[in-house]
Design a protein around this nucleic acid. Structure first.
Lengths: 229, 229
DNA sequence: CCCTGTGAAATCCTTCACAGCC
DNA sequence: GGCTGTGAAGGATTTCACAGGG
């Protein structure tokens, strides 16, 4: 067992997108899709959709297309949607709250298991059924809940300290929303998301407005990627 | 004048990163950097840093390195940081609030000019000096403020409607945080950011844990890109 | 005809390696 | 010596184009 994976990064970053579109189709009782339809709804080129899906196995049938249910379960399996992965979120400002209450996590195999903030006004508060605790209790929390992923939602200057605390309690994957790079020992995965960065990139293309050109008259839009180390 | 731009997408997506690191260096009174230092602090390969910066002109001096001030102003000019670009944010949930109060925007040439939410409980509320208004007043707002960029921070099912309203009042660039694809007429730029997607990508690499390998023992981390339309 | 799966071509991006300058 | 700027090599990803099955 376990030829770990040979799925290209670019494909991985699109799997959540396919998952979302397919879930919407399943909701509408659609049972079958073609790569063309998926292409229209995701903004990914049709051939690219097929290549991506081919990485997960031979899922389609030649004349017909793909069964929505088959694709859904294949992608869900790849992304671990069926698992129950406890999250620790540190920083309960507006962003932390938004994340804590975000319904999209639980339906994708994540469970917000712990909320931490060093502001005494916030500790003790109940958010989505979780009581906000002081970060000093992170170690205790980790021994009982074994969180696998940590989410940093604190101001930039505090991010490095939080990251180190997370690594210290055995968290090996970190999603960092703070606008500041964190350094971690090798072996720890960090993924950086910065809201201002996204806005600046959009702003750049807005200034240098120069249609990258697209044939379709209506066009959905891609998004983001590149993992870490 | 105006040979629009030949800056590769990958470079554009790193400019905000450089800007941030350089601003931090300038704060520390550092006047000079080498590509190696920038590489260490950004996680981008040294040669790549140099190629990126070369796209903005000949900014360095051979034996010495780069002047922080020169790089800062070159990148700032490219990203339009000196401008005053009004933003309209629709959706004042936790995420919308976080965005509205995010200090990082104003220092990067953006100004939150309008906040909108169709929840009557929220309209009238003051956030960061801006009064939350009903989305039906978006058109009036647009005629006086001329927002160039719209930010969607509403639940997924409402995103398409908001996008259409934005396009209707002349907004040509949209940053969409809703977990749902929006279709827009061609010519409109959309950039999609989904918090759950980022978490899922991180989760994938967590499951298929297989070090992508890196020589350094401490490693910062890249982030995200790809534009739209 | 319909569609998927896939080699081959094309494009984009990163890394190497070094010439040229301080 | 150190360091930038850059051609050339190497990878990765996207797109094309079509073979092959329904």
């Amino acid at each position: 067992m376990s030829r770990s994976n040979g799925i290209p990064q670019a494909t991985v970053s699109r799997l959540p997108l396919y998952l979302r579109v397919l879930a919407a189709l399943a909701d509408k009782q659609v049972t079958t899709v073609s790569s063309k339809t998926l292409a229209n709804q995701t903004g990914v080129h049709g051939a690219n959709v097929r290549k991506d899906l081919a990485h997960l196995g031979t899922l389609g049938t030649r004349g017909a297309g793909y069964e929505v249910a088959v694709l859904l379960s294949a992608i869900a399996a790849e992304l671990g949607v069926e698992e129950d992965r406890p999250l620790a979120i540190v920083g309960v400002g507006n962003l932390g709250r938004a994340l804590a209450q975000y319904a999209g996590f639980s339906s994708r195999g994540f469970r917000v298991a712990g909320l931490f903030d060093n502001d005494p006004v916030k500790t003790g508060e109940l958010i989505g059924g979780i009581r906000v605790a002081d970060p000093s209790t992170l170690a205790d929390f980790a021994t009982t809940e074994h969180p696998v992923i940590g989410v940093i939602a604190v101001p930039g200057h505090a991010a490095q300290g939080v990251a180190e605390a997370m690594v210290g309690v055995g968290i090996a994957s970190i999603l960092n929303f703070a606008p500041s790079l964190v350094k971690v020992p090798m072996g720890v995965l960090v993924r950086q998301v910065d809201l201002a960065t996204e806005l600046q990139i959009l702003g750049f293309y807005h200034r240098h407005r120069e249609q990258p050109s697209e044939p379709e008259s209506q066009c959905p839009s891609p998004h983001s990627s590149t993992p870490s180390t």
